[in-house]
Design a binder for these strands. Structure first.
Lengths: 160, 160
DNA sequence: GGCAAGGTACTCGGATATACGATGTCCGAGTCAGAAAGG
DNA sequence: CCTTTCTGACTCGGACATCGTATATCCGAGTACCTTGCC
């Protein structure tokens, strides 16, 4: 099991965007920040836009910015936007082929293996839903107070 | 993100094996139980064997059986055996390319995004580690008391 | 009749093809800014 | 000098290649049982 690595890029990008309120940042700049492939990062940002996490503006002076307060953007929102809403474990209802199976039963609900896996993923998602971009950004500032200024400087220098 | 579907097969197979104590069951029989591809299920069972969850015996009257008490086999054990020990989210330390980066720092530890994702996966694994094959099997018997007998009968009929 | 040796059939085990999705790239649609020309 | 139009460059957006991994399969190694021949 391997998570889409764009999730990592998206999270760091959102943290950076939280330090550029009201100021669109282009995919090219965000990519240059961490030396990432521009076109591919752009694709991830598009997904975030479709999910309503970012807003995009075209043309010169365009770019991406957070669509809402970073305190209302959870890590789960980002994971779902990039990696898809499906659960990792997918019950294929193999019990249907077993002895004494009920053809009408929905084993994604009743199968106990499925239930156990679902409860574990629920714990995972609950943990992610409890963390927001604002939480991360705030904790970064605690340990590295100059981080927001660093970001703004780098974006300004890239603009030249 | 999508989990190896062999995990589902492995869990159901282990539950069934818990009802056949001391009696080896062949991969062919386990596959026929749920109408699964024999050779591929065999591969998963081999992985469980390498992980020390099952023991295998070759030759006629051979097959697989649980290597230890099902109360000591957690769902996490099975997931790790089949899906690998790596975490889904892998920190690639993109902060190393950012401004003010410390080349000697291990950002898999210090990066706050990485920490948040790790804590979520820990919650996931903790949940899985709290469930054993014996727990599942016991709950199955509560709802379907005839399940163990059904399994033994089907295996016996397949043998003929 | 009992025993031993060989053959056979059945099992696991790992090496080998194939299909699908993640990764990476490219070009077109849309848009704003600035320049240039006319009033 | 101001206004308006046109051109151009820059952005996002989605369609198109490429690579890696999960999926699926096959044949070889090993073993217990059964048969057969001998004592």
């Amino acid at each position: 099991m391997r998570m889409n690595e764009g999730v990592e890029w998206a999270m760091h990008s959102c943290v950076n965007l939280s330090w550029m309120p009201g100021q669109p940042v282009t995919a090219r700049h965000l990519a240059a920040f961490y030396d990432l492939p521009t076109a591919y990062l752009n694709k991830q940002l598009q997904a975030l836009t479709r999910a309503g996490i970012l807003t995009s503006v075209s043309g010169p002076k365009g770019g991406f910015q957070l669509a809402r307060d970073p305190r209302n953007i959870t890590l789960l929102d980002i994971v779902v936007a990039i990696d898809g809403p499906d659960e990792a474990f997918r019950c294929t209802q193999i019990l249907k082929a077993g002895p004494g199976a009920d053809p009408k039963a929905d084993y994604t609900k009743t199968c106990l293996v499925s239930q156990a896996m679902r409860s574990a993923e629920l714990a995972y998602r609950r943990e992610l839903a409890g963390q927001t971009i604002a939480d991360i950004a705030g904790r970064v500032v605690e340990t590295t107070p100059e981080a927001p200024a660093n970001a703004r400087n780098r974006f300004a220098n890239l603009r030249s």
